[in-house]
């Protein structure tokens, strides 16, 4: 190994620690702010070590919040993120199965119709998409939060790639044994795709949880707000001082679920990320 001893190694660790500290500082500060009282923040500089109001601030955020209780917003986010992840995985599995394992009229056209949507985020077509959702009466509803964000091809693309690597002998054996296509799908293909499904779930869950613009437009009723968009609504308009401890407690609550998902499924997630994006 090259230059991996002595002062060089020390410097590397020091550099790494400085980097991690820089990356972590904003999160640490938010945590500290969520454990002190308002007085400690509005008279700067605020302390850099946690205070004793942790339970109080988080209870206040979860039960009363500013517009809607944060517990409600957390629940909405959980429904939205899970709905997007599960919905996208289901429709993508089915359509990738159809595209790889069947030859049917219009296959090529459907294939392109789906893949054109790759990488085109909802932000680009917000106004007309909003009108569609409004016409369907989807404002302030979970279906309105979930369905428009399912229309994307990334997951389909990933499953298609994966299905093409599955040895075709398996499909042939199933056919010789007289298994019907759906039987093959449920008994062989689905169990084989478990790792991919799990990795994709992590990525899509975070994608759904972190949505901002779409929930901002489609939920006008505070009881339907998601937590990520709800934080901004907690800032008072005009000159009133923001309730910083509650806002920071909410910010931490907003990042804890996706962070837990990422850290606990790190190995899977890193693989899934590298696979789905290349």
């Amino acid at each position: 190994m090259v230059e991996k001893r002595g002062a060089g190694l020390w410097l590397t660790h020091v550099g790494m620690i400085i980097g991690v500290a820089f990356i972590f500082f904003p999160i640490w500060l938010a945590f500290v702010a969520s454990t002190v009282e308002q007085q400690a923040i509005v008279r700067p500089p605020m302390p850099l070590l946690p205070g004793d109001k942790l339970v109080e601030n988080y209870t206040r955020a979860l039960t009363s919040g500013v517009n809607a209780p944060v517990a409600t917003m957390l629940f909405n986010s959980a429904i939205m993120a899970t709905g997007i992840a599960v919905g996208k995985i289901i429709i993508s599995l089915l359509s990738a199965f159809a595209i790889v394992y069947f030859r049917f009229p219009g296959r090529q056209i459907f294939f392109w119709l789906i893949f054109v949507t790759l990488m085109l985020p909802v932000e680009v077509r917000i106004v007309p998409t909003y009108e569609v959702a409004a016409n369907f009466g989807m404002l302030n509803s979970y279906s309105g939060l979930i369905l428009p964000l399912i229309a994307s091809a990334t997951a389909t693309f990933l499953f298609r790639q994966f299905f093409m690597t599955v040895p075709s002998e398996l499909a042939e054996a199933a056919r010789v044994d007289g298994a019907r296509p759906m039987r093959f799908f449920f008994d062989i293909l689905l169990p084989m795709s478990r790792t991919n499904i799990a990795a994709l779930f992590v990525i899509l869950f975070i994608f759904g949880w972190n949505q901002y613009l779409w929930p901002l437009l489609i939920t006008t009723d505070p009881s339907m707000n998601t937590i990520v968009m709800g934080i901004k609504q907690m800032f008072p308009s005009g000159d009133d001082t923001a309730d910083w401890p509650v806002i920071m407690a909410t910010s931490l609550l907003a990042m804890i679920p996706p962070v837990i998902v990422v850290i606990s499924m790190q190995r899977l997630f890193v693989r899934g990320l590298v696979d789905s994006e290349k």
């Binding site: 359509s95 159809a98 049917f104 296959r107 949507t117 229309a151 075709s168 296509p181 093959f184």
Partner: peptide, 22 residues
């Protein structure tokens, strides 16, 4: 993929949800 299943309506039904939403 050379090995494929027969059928027209089944694959169309499978791909329909994604096409409709898209």
């Amino acid at each position: 993929k050379r090995i494929t299943f027969k059928g027209v309506w089944l694959p169309l039904a499978l791909i329909a949800p994604q096409i409709v939403i898209t």
